[in-house]
């Protein structure tokens, strides 16, 4: 028996958007050919932030779990990478998914504790967890304690024989990781889990009474986000070649910027973090010299956006023009429509 209806996801806008996106990806994949060393580093940083912001967006904008402690997993991933390569001899690139796996395992008991807190208190609780991770890391003397450690040359050369090849390798892995994170998010949102998430976002009580297992859905999202965040963190610090508790668990770098990016770009929409990251880096290129004034302005802009345009840049554009980059809409097409009556 054929189904009485079909669920369609794509719109004209998203078809154009996806085509443009694919084109852009091809261009970016070829970057080692046309870009210099600094370009590649900058692009890798952009990919990292797009991925981090997308994951934070999934957690906060879709699952309603506003965390100001995701730096816990960035740092955890980075430290697992350094620990497994230095202490256990794991190949650096293999250590990235290892970092993700360990983070996913750690995230389970953390969620068990954190889910006892609601709303705002959950947010601060995640910050406490990040602090615990940071303080614990500074107690590990094998990894440099409070002052940190550099990745030994032997491990660095194990990745690839030449420096140039290493840079290309890390660049492609960064690009691949970003694409994987975005793809995973889009697929998740298209699935029934995604429908459940949207229901939870709109009205948690109604979702619960419709049979959605809210706690399990949130748990799954929390663990997946931790996994992704840790892998990105591992890659970031693999590129930096040096780690310390304060940099690995920095609130500014891994939470403040991520939050501002997502707010300005547009919370609750997958395209938001991408737009937000672009705006963020444009601002940074022009205003970087201002140091703490830059952060101050960013904070002020984020507040202004939150109060005046809470849907962010993309939210405004999508609301006004109906644009969509990713095929995430859900439209029912009934089989009966195809027949003439």
């Amino acid at each position: 028996m054929t189904a009485a209806f079909k669920v369609e996801h794509a719109t004209r806008s998203s078809r154009i958007g996806m085509a443009a996106f694919a084109l852009a990806l091809l261009l970016l994949a070829a970057a080692p050919a046309w870009g210099g060393r600094d370009d590649l580093r900058l692009l890798a940083e952009i990919y990292a932030y797009v991925a981090l912001a997308s994951l934070w967006n999934l957690l906060a904008g879709y699952a309603g779990l506003v965390s100001v402690g995701q730096q816990a997993y960035v740092g955890l991933g980075a430290y697992v990478l350094f620990a497994s390569t230095i202490l256990a001899g794991v190949h650096p690139l293999l250590a990235v998914p290892v970092a993700g796996a360990i983070a996913a395992i750690v995230a389970l008991p953390v969620a068990g504790l954190m889910f006892r807190l609601r709303g705002h208190y959950f947010a601060i609780g995640t910050w406490v967890v990040a602090e615990v991770f940071r303080l614990s890391a500074s107690q590990i003397s094998a990894l440099g304690g409070g002052s940190g450690i550099s990745l030994p040359a032997s491990i660095v050369t194990a990745m690839a024989p030449s420096r140039q090849l290493r840079e290309f390798l890390i660049y492609w892995v960064a690009l691949a990781l970003m694409v994987a994170v975005l793809a995973a998010i889009v697929l998740l949102l298209r699935s029934r889990y995604g429908l459940a998430l949207t229901a939870i976002r709109d009205n948690e009580l109604a979702a619960r009474s419709s049979g959605v297992d809210v706690t399990r859905t949130k748990l799954v999202v929390y663990i997946l986000t931790a996994l992704g965040t840790a892998m990105i963190g591992a890659l970031i610090f693999l590129q930096k070649l040096r780690i310390s508790p304060d940099t690995a668990f920095s609130v500014n770098d891994w939470t403040a910027f991520v939050i501002f990016i997502t707010v300005i770009g547009g919370i609750g929409r997958v395209e938001g973090p991408i737009i937000g990251t672009i705006v963020f880096f444009l601002l940074r290129q022009t205003l970087a010299d201002l140091g703490s004034l830059y952060l101050l302005m960013l904070g002020a802009v984020a507040i202004a956006v939150m109060l005046l345009a809470p849907k962010g840049i993309w939210g405004f554009l999508a609301g006004r023009f109906g644009w969509q980059l990713f095929p995430l809409e859900r439209r029912l097409r009934f089989a009966a429509d195809a027949r003439t009556t």
Partner: peptide, 21 residues
């Protein structure tokens, strides 16, 4: 939940950096 949390977070960043300046 988001607006008060994010606005006060932004405020935190602003105060810290203003004091720093």
């Amino acid at each position: 939940l988001l607006p008060p949390l994010l606005v006060t977070f932004g405020l935190s960043v602003i105060i810290q950096n203003a004091l720093l300046e």
